[in-house]
Each structure stands twice: as C-alpha cells, then as structure tokens.
Write a protein that binds this DNA or RNA. Structure first.
Lengths: 111, 111
DNA sequence: CTCCTGAATTAGTTGACACTAATTTAGAGA
DNA sequence: TCTCTAAATTAGTGTCAACTAATTCAGGAG
C-alpha cells in the first residue's frame, strides 16, 4: 500500500527519543493546550477553560510539559503566562493540521 | 519563543482524533515496527527481531495497529507479511525524521 | 492422522497516566 | 497583619498500557 522508503532507517536509532516526544502530544488535553499556545501566550486559567480541565489537572499537565521543555511559564504578578518553548511542537502541530484538517473536513457541514 | 499562529485553531476540533492517532505512535516499539514497515513488508518474526520483542508482545502491538487500520497483514502459508495501511503513518515518520535526524545527529560520531 | 512451526489470543501482573480533593506557596491588596 | 487569588504540589484512586506465560489456531510436512 506504500512504496518502500529506505530513508526512514535513520529514524530507528532515534525511536526512543521520538516516542518520548510523541507521548507528550498523545493526549487530547495537552494537544488542546499546545494548539492554544500556538496562537500565543495564555495564563493557566485560560488554558483550563480551553481544555475544560480543573486547575490541578491543568497544572499537572503543564508541569509534565515543562519538565520536557515543551513549554515555559513567565510569571507576572499572580498569573503565569505560558508559551511554547520547543519549536518541534509547532512543527508537528502543523503536520497534524495538514493530516487531520483537510479541505473535506472543513466542509463537513455541507449539504 | 514562537510567533502566534491562528491557523492552528482548526486543529482544536480534531484534537481527540489526532491524539488517538498519536497514541499509536507514541511507543518506541511501535515506532520501530513502522520504521521497518516503511522500508517494505515484513513478517512477524522479522519484526520481533527488529524491535527486540517476544512473539506474543509483537502480536499484541500488531493487533492494536490493525484495529486502527494502521497496518494490514497478508497471509502467506505459515507466515503473515505486514505492511503499512495508513499513509498518515508514512507522513509522520518523515516528519519525525526531519526533526530527530538532523545533519548534526548524523555526525554524532565526529571528532 | 500426528507433529511442528508461525502467529493470534487469553489471563494475570506491573507500572504509568489522568484525574479529584486537599494542601501549600507566592504575590497583591485592604 | 490578615485575606484573597492564581498556580503548584501532594496523596490517593481508578483506568489503561505493555509485558510474560500459557494456550489456541491454522497451515505445511511426515
């Protein structure tokens, strides 16, 4: 169904690292968080609303992504403004968009 | 650290689906399996060696990916030859290669 | 038929994930 | 100071992921 592609062999040696990276994104809530952050900085409170999560659950997701350097927080008074720290996040977000948001999907409400 | 990108908003509605897809790839063994399959068909036995997995564990990984239509098996006598069934797998494999197999990585053994 | 081999399935275990609830920390204001 | 608020942390819980070991299934060879 797909033609052989020897180029991919290089990836095998990085499979562990790549899998670790993907694990962070393989969660609907974290994906929503990153989508939001791709549009610009956001506070924890804002992210809670976007992802429909409790403050605690959100904080744990952010801690996980912070520990992997995917996002960073900028403290400003009582609030913390988060943003994407790893450009690979943006890259994969775009790739996912190209595969999951096709023209057909965009017209899903058509007659 | 990254400039705002409103385009990503479309992805939010597909976050669940995308996360489900990523979950399948967010595992070193399954990534190795897919890398190998990207280079062409392989039997279960071959895949066991590539990923250093027991026959049972491999079969369970393949069953999981079969259920999501990521791979398909072609029976040939006693053996089953697997191949990639979802082109999105190939797409993301290439994307990952571009992000985890940079020129710098290729020279990691340099002086 | 019996036996063997490659693969799939099932049961059971272990550890990681994702939450809630409660607590703690840190900054701003009265 | 006391208090309130945003966020982080901790403890505890239920669910799911990934394996091993044992079994079953299916096809070929004798």
């Amino acid at each position: 169904m797909t033609s052989p592609d020897p180029q991919i062999q290089d990836l095998q040696s990085q499979a562990g690292e790549a899998a670790g990276f993907l694990k962070q994104l393989a969660n609907e809530k974290r994906l929503l968080i990153l989508c939001r952050l791709a549009m610009g900085e956001a506070t924890v409170g804002e992210l809670c609303e976007v992802a429909d999560l409790s403050q605690s659950a959100m904080s744990q997701h952010l801690a996980k992504m912070r520990s992997e350097k995917l996002v960073t927080g900028r403290k400003d008074g009582l609030q913390v403004h988060y943003s994407i720290a790893d450009p690979r996040c943006v890259g994969i977000l775009h790739h996912l968009k190209s595969q999951f948001c096709t023209a057909a999907d965009a017209l899903e409400g058509k007659a």
